[in-house]
Design a protein around this nucleic acid. Structure first.
Lengths: 218, 218
DNA sequence: TAGATTGTTAATCGATTAACAATC
DNA sequence: TAGATTGTTAATCGATTAACAATC
């Protein structure tokens, strides 16, 4: 199987690219023989160099076939394997606002074997409403649910203010990965991973482009 | 003012870092003298090297002061200037689902001088509901609104399927920057910038971490 | 002054790309 | 076979970091 030596952690830029490959291969525009794919095809679609695609796939232990390319299902299986999609990851959503709702309802997660088991909100108004098939629960239930379902992943969509405090609770209750959409940098003990999704950062590129356009027009 | 020579475009990684600086300086945890900030402070908070912070600020033409650091308001002004936050950017939201709603309602945009002037949805059910202070309009009004308000930026939160077709309409109507949250790669003519926000990609890192943890436990 | 911090050059490091033989 | 594509080494490129003199 040519698996990567254990112990060497893959870089997160590589992991992100894997996710791009995974989604591209999963819903490729209708092809005649989607059973194979060449590094060139992937590269072209994702606007990158084909050598890099081959390097990435080699790092997963997938072997291609000269003149043919890579077997799609092998690539998909390797990515699933590396990212742990063979097993379902249970997650909770903390903060049942609009963003929390959008994420909880996002259907694309199932492809990644991600399953939302519960949602929480401190607002009594929101408690009891149905989100992603589960009832929004009060924050008091947090620890109990995490422990009962053995949840390791939390999606945090609360305001900046209570974010750190909630993160602390999550970690204490057994959460080991936090997907943080709160506009606040979190401090967590080692062994816990935080992915800070600072969405506004993406606006910078667009704003910069628009400013340059406006200046040209002058 | 030591402005950067015109014509050299700043890299988008740099632009993203600028946004991080901007938000950090904008709401720094209560300090005694928040009038100045050192590259070390910024670096520590954002978990990066202080040399890189100084390089970035130098690229903007901001000059620091030995022993003192940088004047906060100068840094903020320089970033606003580079990213074009002196002028308001009008934007529309296309797709008034949960994610569209979350983005339309996001209060952090005002800091970036981003102002949502209208929202659209093809679903008659959603039309007429109020989102971010404006009424959700039918898609038919798209071109008229873009032209009337001179909108250049569109936030796209529609399903993958109609995304390309809508993007084409947007570009034809005068949109020059698309913030794409649809799970679909868009093709646009040169002169138009697309920022594809593939949120699920961020999950890769967390899933990988969780898998490694699970393996260690075995 | 001593010490903190900048600004900048040089060194390092890593990621990406180019080149090309190997393969079917 | 000729040609397409992989796999891999070497070259390049750029980003990050180290080092340290300059400054106040």
């Amino acid at each position: 199987m040519g698996r990567k030596t254990q112990g060497e952690l893959l870089k997160h830029v590589l992991l992100e690219r894997l996710m791009h490959y995974y989604y591209f291969l999963g819903e490729r525009p209708g092809e005649d023989s989607p059973e194979t794919v060449s590094s060139g095809q992937i590269a072209k679609f994702l606007n990158m160099d084909d050598t890099l695609v081959r390097k990435d796939l080699a790092a997963l232990g997938v072997r291609g076939h000269p003149r043919i390319g890579f077997k799609t299902h092998e690539v998909l299986a390797a990515i699933r394997n590396v990212l742990g999609f063979e097993k379902t990851n249970k997650a909770i959503v903390v903060g049942a606002g609009r963003l929390g709702g959008a994420l909880a309802a996002y259907s694309g997660f199932s492809k990644c074997s991600l399953f939302i088991v519960a949602a929480f909100d401190s607002d009594p108004q929101k408690q009891g409403s149905v989100l992603a098939g589960t009832v929004v629960q009060p924050m008091e239930n947090l620890e109990a649910v995490i422990q009962r379902h053995n949840v390791r992943l939390a999606i945090l969509t609360v305001p900046a203010d209570p974010a750190q405090e909630i993160a602390d609770r999550l970690v204490r209750a057994g959460i080991r990965a936090i997907w943080n959409f709160a506009p606040k940098a979190l401090v967590v003990p080692s062994g816990v991973v935080v992915r800070h999704e600072h969405i506004v950062a993406g606006l910078a590129e667009l704003a910069y482009h628009l400013k340059n356009i406006a200046e040209q027009e002058t």
